[in-house]
Structure formats: C-alpha cells, structure tokens
C-alpha cells in the first residue's frame, strides 16, 4: 500500500467515524432526559416529529381531543440538549420562536419552572400537560412516554 493509499484509507475511516458519531450522538443525548405527561394523556409514545410540533405549538391536541399544554424547565443544560436533539433549536431560537407567537397573538409563552419536583407536580396536576425532566426523576405521579 502506497503512502497515498494509506492517506485515503485513513481519511475514509475518519469520515466514517465522524458520520457514526453524528448518527449516534442524538441517541446518546436522548438518554439524559425523559418526556413526561399527565396520566390523562392517552399515549405511551410519541414520534420525534410530533414532539417537535408540540414544543413549537403546532400540534395542540392529543388523540383524546384534550388540548396540550407545554411546560419547560428553566435555564437547564438538560433542556438545551432536548431542544437541540428533538426540536432542532438553540434555547435562544426556541425563545424567539415563542416570542414570535406571543407578539403576533397566536399563543402564550409556555410555563417555565426551575425546580424539577415542582415541574413534575405541575404536570401531574394539569391534564394534557407535557414536560421534560432529567432521566429517573419522573416519579409515579406522571407518565413517562418514549420517543419513537
């Protein structure tokens, strides 16, 4: 094998590894958070596309016709990961998206709660609500749904 061939081979391996990293990275990040809903929500899983639509205010109803309410954790690294992995936005882009809706009269800002326990309690007490918490922090008062 000539030097040239080795260089090409190394480059291919490098690009392959980078591609693999890009593919598995979102899956790895998804393991750090859980999506929770109130127990009245009649789903066990939700597609990434639907989850994105919910957190952008586009999908507004569950299958049982109950309206969806979104609650978000305040200023958390975890939510940043969720936004980048699922919604495809940075926290600032997410804020701007909702401010766009607010300043055109289309929606209210999602409720923002800093404390995880309070966020879980809020979801548990409000039918139709969806939120994001660190993995393992959901407890039994809410339902954890998987991302298809």
């Amino acid at each position: 094998m000539t030097k040239c061939h080795r260089a090409i081979w190394r480059t291919c391996w490098g690009l392959g590894a980078l591609g693999l990293l890009l593919v598995i990275a979102p899956v790895a990040l998804a393991g750090n958070f859980e999506v929770i809903v109130s127990k009245t929500v009649p789903v066990a899983s939700v597609s990434k596309a639907d989850l994105r639509a919910i957190f952008l205010g586009e999908k507004v109803k569950w299958d049982n016709s109950r309206y969806i309410k979104v609650v978000v954790p305040e200023d958390s690294e975890l939510f940043k990961e969720f936004l980048q992995t699922v919604v495809g936005k940075t926290p600032m882009q997410f804020d701007k998206h909702w401010q766009n809706l607010v300043f055109t009269g289309k929606a209210a800002m999602p409720r923002s709660i800093a404390d995880t326990a309070q966020l879980v309690d809020f979801v548990a007490g409000h039918p139709g609500t969806i939120g994001v918490v660190p993995a393992g922090k959901a407890g039994s008062s809410v339902k954890t749904i998987s991302i298809k």
Binding site: V60, Y67, V102, F103, G105, K106, A108
Partner: peptide, 16 residues
C-alpha cells in the same frame, strides 16, 4: 404593548 387571554382551551383573544 399587547394583552391576551385564553378564555377556554383553544379559544384566545388579544390585541396589540
């Protein structure tokens, strides 16, 4: 300045 209120789920009213 804008004001908005959700009257019932799904029903909103507001002005800017």
């Amino acid at each position: 300045i804008n004001f908005s209120k959700e009257l019932t789920p799904g029903l909103r009213v507001g002005m800017q």
